[in-house]
Design a protein around this nucleic acid. Structure first.
Lengths: 341, 341
DNA sequence: AGCTTTCTTGCAAACGTTTGCAACAGAAAT
DNA sequence: ATTTCTGTTGCAAACGTTTGCAAGAAAGCT
């Protein structure tokens, strides 16, 4: 019954509400925005009316006028292997934390996945749309240069990825090279001598992990780490891993997988070929995703603190939004020893 | 050099560009929108100028004027267990496909995770923001009634979840009850008699899976299926599962886990307690996530076609956006027999 | 009583597009 | 030569907010 009365008069905008309240639109705007310059009684009345009619100021209009939208863009550039990240739980988990953190700070999140090869303009297009106040790029993929270009002219951007000496864009990420060293050191400590790196070394993060492992091999005078390029999509990865394993059977006794996902697949293949882990071959992953505890045997891996990463990304972005210039944030990896190495 | 000349004059809006091109803003708008009523030469000139200056019409303004934004809202209601879905790869995978599908259709995706308990107004707030043309709700959680309420007054909404006879909101989802029957039948075919359901039965999807299993038990005159409530967050789940297992040791010989994730954890606990799978206890999961192939032994499970689900959600939403009224879409589950049952 | 000061409010001009309407040119038809 | 048409363009009013400025009222001060 009260229902009826209130729904009869449709309140489409601030002006309608102003008419009902007997004040001017400006006052309504101020009341709803919680500004201090409006009388307590007036505000109460307006708020009550707004509640009763389920009215909310239009964010598009507000955004247009204020020249800010309250929306942060999150973009995931997909490499050549388009489907690659779809199942990559690392990025998805990061996205989850990012969503929580942005929400906590009162921002909305606009998600976009792009294929840079089909659309070289992906980043400018997103930024230039006027829909977002800032942008978080998840993963540099092979777009390092493009990102650098943009960074020169556009402040509010933070990137998840690998930090390179002297780069111009602000990045948050794990110290992949150090992580790579940790993994290799662990493999060796567990008794491995001839180490292979399982994964594509084109993306910067992976290249750094590989380099870290190589550092250790060189330092200790071991044979160089063997790179076994592997796609990330689970279907292709399995066969590729199988092929690698038969090609190098007996020639390697330690495998550093670029990712826990890869490590888990590798473990399955090793089992299939009757190679015992860690007896015959030691294995480490990277990320410490939930799956790392659930493999048999559970995976020794290098942990990335995803939650801290998400917080870092958001924190730096907000600082940049406020006009600060910020340094990159490099997070320490942590070795988690379980049973595969 | 050319660089310089073009960047010196900043083109902030359509009016600036119009001035450069020597035409009116209206013409620029029409040219950039690809309307037919503008002369070919004029259009070319305008497009060239726009390209040269990297100008893109402001989507906020455009959205405001046209009363549509080109953005679809995707909202994930988090149950009481806030952290619950963060690691739930099912929702995250669905989200990935959704992003792809929406992009393909020329829409942007605005992501919001909400905790209904802290904000009973979550759905209206999103819809009323004026920022989105339509909304996809991922998971009914315990918000069935709230969604029903909204559905009456708001057309462009599609929900991922369970279909209930006579409901008013348009839903896309797997036939969970049928899936539950499949799982139970398989457990029984593998030799189980006393079956337990591992998972919280509050969410509708899970309740339906449980009911399906119960159907089968009743039909075959077996003891009723035992509900073992379990949280989804991995940390709590493990202990809870362990507790369940010791409490009912020997009393159950078949476990239907609500989720592959839960099944995988369960498998680990079973192994820990020295219970052989499938010899002592048969086990099935639900979803057929990548992890299902990687457990030891690999998981027998009920497959949901996530890609088809995403396509269905988007397809139905676009139809509704166009004014159609659409029926719900119930997808068939598929039993995938591996080695745990 | 007159003069500041402090609170509240209204007015109107933005923000950057889109689009109905009208105008104009040139071409085609009468 | 007049009319009708077609194809392009410009004009100006929206879309729904926010906010600087000014005005009015109430209250405090001398």
């Amino acid at each position: 019954m009260d229902e009826d009365k209130s729904t009869r008069v449709m309140v489409r905008n601030i002006t309608d509400l102003a008419r009902l309240a007997g004040v001017s639109p400006g006052t309504v705007s101020r009341a709803l925005a919680g500004k201090s310059l409006v009388n307590a009684k007036t505000r109460e009345k307006i708020e009550a009316l707004a509640r009763e009619h389920g009215f909310r100021p239009n964010q598009m209009a507000s955004g247009l006028r204020r020249q800010k939208t309250g929306v942060i863009g999150v973009v995931i550039p997909l490499g050549h292997d388009t489907r690659q990240q779809i199942s990559d739980s690392f990025f998805m988990t990061l996205l989850g934390y990012l969503a929580d953190e942005l929400t906590r700070q009162g921002y909305d999140l606009m998600l976009r996945r792009v294929v840079p090869e089909e659309d070289s303009d992906w980043l400018d297009r997103f930024i230039g749309s006027g829909m977002i106040d800032g942008v978080i790029v998840i993963g540099q993929s092979d777009q390092f240069d493009r990102i650098e270009d943009v960074a020169d002219g556009y402040g509010p951007m933070v990137v998840w990825g690998n930090h390179t000496e002297g780069q111009r864009h602000c990045v948050v990420g794990t110290d992949n090279r150090l992580g790579g060293r940790m993994a290799a050191e662990r493999l060796i400590a567990a008794g491995a001598q001839r180490i292979a790196f399982l994964g594509d070394t084109t993306p910067m993060e992976f290249a750094a992990r590989f380099a870290g492992a190589q550092d250790v091999a060189t330092r200790l005078g071991l044979p160089p780490v063997l790179a076994l390029p592997t796609h990330l999509s689970p279907d292709r990865a399995s066969e590729e891993i199988a092929a690698h394993l038969s090609a190098h059977a007996g020639a390697i006794d330690g495998i550093f997988a670029a990712t826990d996902t890869l490590a888990a697949l590798c473990l399955t293949e090793l089992r299939g070929q009757g190679i015992a882990v860690p007896r015959d071959v030691k294995l480490t992953g990277f990320d410490d995703l939930p799956i790392a505890r659930q493999t048999v045997p559970p995976l020794t891996t290098v942990r990335q603190d995803i939650a801290a990463g998400a917080r870092g990304l958001v924190d730096l972005l907000l600082r940049r939004l406020a006009g600060e210039t910020t340094e990159s944030l490099v997070l320490p990896p942590e070795l988690v020893v379980r049973e595969t190495a």
